[in-house]
């Protein structure tokens, strides 16, 4: 293979298709990621609550949901949501993009629910006991004492989930849904080049994931320090 043309080819592809890569590909990838993690967090919170329910039946349902989603490949789930479910739920007039979003969202929710549950359970049991002994109800204890502390455990992990999901959305290109990997397929089709567009795509992914993971890391360290509560409030100009 001749690599002498690698750089010139890459530059020419970039100058020709950069809008496709960024304004179509990256945009769609980000939209897919944000939708699936945001809705996944909402759904995941619900699943986490179910998993911690006092009722065994509800706990069981949540466990099955989590195990099935986490125990099967995401590609398989995408196939089911793309090929099977639209034929069953014909009355749901969802676009293919939406079906894939729903699938990714459900996938994300299973992981997020475990993140939330473990974040909550990592809060020292003594905190709950102290709050209850003061007379706080279960709900008040959760809201005022446990959750504010659990957030410290949950947010960094949620950031990592976002980065994971950003990469997982590349599977949407299986259905040609316009994400960055789809851009690659398009460019490959018209230019007959593979390595060059692939390199561009890789660089774009890295340009997003690397700063994000650094941010999560920094954030995580700050969150681990209890003084950050105070600093955050001070910075916000708030009263302590």
């Amino acid at each position: 293979m001749d690599f002498s043309l690698f750089l010139p080819n890459m530059l020419s592809i970039w100058s020709k298709y950069w809008q496709l890569f960024l304004f179509t590909g990256l945009k769609n990838t980000l939209i897919l990621t944000i939708i699936s993690v945001a809705l996944g967090t909402v759904l995941g919170t619900l699943i986490a609550m179910m998993k911690m329910s006092k009722l065994k039946a509800i706990r069981f349902i949540a466990s099955v949901y989590i195990e099935v989603i986490r125990g099967t490949p995401i590609l398989l789930q995408l196939y089911v949501f793309y090929f099977v479910l639209p034929n069953i739920f014909t009355f749901l007039k969802l676009s293919q993009f939406m079906w894939v979003s729903v699938s990714l969202c459900i996938n994300s929710s299973a992981y997020v629910s475990e993140v939330i549950r473990s974040g909550i359970q990592a809060v020292d049991k003594g905190q709950t006991e102290a709050a209850r002994s003061l007379g706080f109800s279960e709900g008040q204890t959760m809201l005022k004492i446990v959750l504010p502390q659990a957030v410290r455990n949950i947010l960094p992990a949620l950031g990592n989930e976002f980065i994971m999901m950003l990469k997982e959305t590349s599977l949407a290109s299986t259905f040609f849904l316009g994400d960055i990997m789809t851009s690659y397929l398009v460019v490959k089709g018209v230019s007959y080049l593979t390595l060059e567009p692939l390199t561009i795509v890789a660089i774009i992914y890295l340009c997003v994931t690397y700063p994000l993971s650094k941010l999560v890391e920094k954030f995580g360290k700050k969150m681990a320090n209890p003084n950050s509560y105070r600093n955050r409030k001070l910075k916000a100009g708030g009263k302590i």
């Binding site: 003594g126 006991e129 102290a130 002994s133 007379g135």
Partner: peptide, 18 residues
Amino acid sequence: RQKMGMVFQHFNVFPHLT
């Protein structure tokens, strides 16, 4: 419980509050 104060071995002060 509001009328029964309790003090624990491991203090259990709330670390996220002043």
